[in-house]
Design a protein around this nucleic acid. Sequence first.
DNA 1: GGTAAAACTGGAAGCGCTTCCAGCGATGTT
DNA 2: AACATCGCTGGAAGCGCTTCCAGTTTTACC
Lengths: 337, 337
Amino acid sequence: MAAQRPRRQPTLDEVAERAGVSRSAASRVINKAPHVSRATRDAVERAIKEMGYLPNRTARALATQQTGIVALAVSHDDPELFADPFFAQVIVGVSAALEETDLHLLLCLASSGRGRSRLTNLLHTRGVDGIMLMALHGDDPLTHIVRRAGLPAVYGGRPLNFEPQFYVDSDNLGGARLATEHLIGLGRTRIVSITGPMSTDVGRARYRGYREAMIMAGLTPYATAEGDFTETGGAAAMKTLLDSHPDLDAIFAASDDTAAGALRVLIDAGRSVPADVAVVGFDDLGTAERTDPPLTTVHQSVQALGKGMTRMLVELIAGHEPSSVILPTKLVLRDSA
Amino acid sequence: MAAQRPRRQPTLDEVAERAGVSRSAASRVINKAPHVSRATRDAVERAIKEMGYLPNRTARALATQQTGIVALAVSHDDPELFADPFFAQVIVGVSAALEETDLHLLLCLASSGRGRSRLTNLLHTRGVDGIMLMALHGDDPLTHIVRRAGLPAVYGGRPLNFEPQFYVDSDNLGGARLATEHLIGLGRTRIVSITGPMSTDVGRARYRGYREAMIMAGLTPYATAEGDFTETGGAAAMKTLLDSHPDLDAIFAASDDTAAGALRVLIDAGRSVPADVAVVGFDDLGTAERTDPPLTTVHQSVQALGKGMTRMLVELIAGHEPSSVILPTKLVLRDSA
DNA sequence: GGTAAAACTGGAAGCGCTTCCAGCGATGTT
DNA sequence: AACATCGCTGGAAGCGCTTCCAGTTTTACC
C-alpha cells in the first residue's frame, strides 16, 4: 500500500459555483468582510459545510503576503544545549500565546553555518512573518542576519553588542540584588558570587545585581569567580573560591546548575549548607528543587518570557509598536539559605 | 522609529527582464532544469547576483504544491510535560536531519482542544507537506486527525490502538529484556518491576521484556507495580512493593525517573543500593547520571529516533515507501546494579 | 546541402486565493 | 419625483512562481 496521498480539497471556485455566487462573494464571507447579504452568506456557508471546504493556506499567503508563520530561532554552537529546560519553557510559553492567534511556530535550531544560512534564506524568501530570537552571545551572527532581513523581530533576553528595539527580558539585575540582599539579611558578610559568562548580558546583569546589593549594604563584594551556568563550571569555580577565600560564608550563584555544582564541592569539603555557608541560585527551572538541600533561588518565569515575546511579535506584525518588557523575578525560599 | 518593514525583494520577472530573457527561462536556471543555454544561464545568474534575488517561498509553494515545511506534533494534556528532555532530544535529532534537506520544522504542541483543531486545520489547509507524531497514548484523537488528513505521516513510537504503517521506535522490548537479564546474571531472583503506564505501548513493551526475560530464565515475575514514568510515580510504586514484597532484591524500573523515585524510597527505607537491592532504569537521558548512586540503565538514542523519523518522512514525501525501523537499545553499566 | 532530431526559447495557462473597481438596484433625502 | 447614497455584486487583475507547449534555432548525420 502506498503512502496515503492527499485527496484533493475543494477550491473556493467550486464553493462559489455550488453556492451560485461569484468567487469574490465567497471570499468575502470567508473573510467576514462587509457588504455581504444575508442570502449570499447563508448560501456560501452551506456550500462550505457540505463540501468540507477549507481555504488553502499557501494561496492565501501569496495573496495576502502573510504566511501565518513565525519563527523561533535558537542559536547555539552545540545543539545539545537545546536540551536545557529553559528552551522547553520558552517554547511552551510561545505555544500557549500562539494558540490565541492563528499563527504557527517554526522552530530553527541555527547552530552550524548551514543552519544559519538556512535561516537567512528562510527570512529573505519571506517564509515567515516575523522572528523571535533567543540566547545570543556577544555578537552572534544571527543578529546581523535578522536585522538585514528587515522582518519584525523580537529578542528574548538582550544581546551584548546592541540594545534591540524590541525585547522581553527577566529582571536579572533585580533578581540578583534580591538574592544578595537576602544573604545579607541573614547576617552573612563574606558573600562571594559565582557568575555566569561575562560575555553574556545575563551573566553581567546578575553580577551587577550582586555587586550593587553588596555596595548598597556597605559591604565589599568579597570575591568572584566566573562560571558558565553549568554544574561543572560551578563546581570548578567553587573550588578556586574555596581555595582563595576559605572563610566565605555565603554564595550567590548565577544559576541553579552553578549552585548545584558549588553545593557538591561544598559538601565534599565538609561545609554544611546553610549552616556554614548559605547559597542561593537563580532560575528555578527544576534543578533547584532537586538539589540537596533544595535551593533558595531567584525564580524567573520563562513561560512568561515566551508569551511576552510572542505577544510582542504579534503586535509588531500587526503594525503596532509595542514597548519592551522586563519581567519581574522573585525570591523563592527553600533550605539552602 | 517604526518596526522595520521588509523591503521589497526583486521578483523573478525583474530578474528575467534584467537578464534579457523570458521568465520561464529564468525559472529554469533557478531550478536547474535542462534545456538552458550557457549564455542564458550566465545572464540570469549574473542578474540574480546583482539584484540579490531569492525566490519567494510562498509563490513557489503555490505553484509546486509543496510547502517545504514538515510538522512535528507533540500531544500532551499537560504542556508542562513537553519539558521532558526526551522531546528536546527528538527535536535536536529532527533538526539535524532536516538540515540536510531544505525543509523546515513546524512545531505543534497540540494539547488542548484548541491546539488540536489548529493542527487539524493546518493539515487540511495544506500548510505542511507531512507530519511526525510523538507520544500518543491509547487512542489519541491526533491519530484520527492525521489519518483523515491523508498526509504523509510517520510515528515516533507506536500508538496502542493500531500499528502505524510508518514508524520509528526504540527496541523497548529488547532493552527491557537486556536489563532484566543483567539483574538475573547478578544472581538476583526476587526481581520486581515498576512499569510504565499500561495504556502506552512503551509501558507494555518494557513490561513484556521484563516478563519474558524472567520466564526464559526459569524465574517467575516476582511482582509488579504500575508507575507513570515519573519520579513521584516511581516512589509511590516502590512503597507499595516494599510493603507487599519486603524481600525483593532487584528492580527493573521502566524509566530512569521512575528508578530515581524508587531509589529515594529505598534509601529512606534503609536498603543499600546495589548491595541489598540492585536497580536498573531505562532511557539514559540525563537523570541516570545524576542519581545517587548513578543508575545502570538501558540507553536509547532519542536523537537517532528523531533523525530516523525525519528521513522516513522525507522519503514518504518524495513518493517512496520506506520501511519502519526499530532502533537498538543498549545496557549502560553504572553503580546501581 | 538536405533532413531529422535535439536543444532551446518565450508565451500562456495555471496554482488558489484576495481585493479593487465599476455597475447595479434598493434605500434615504429635499 | 428627482437625486445622491448606500449595500451588494461579479469581473478582472493581481500575488510570484512553475510548467506545458508550440515554435524556432542548432546540431548531427547521411
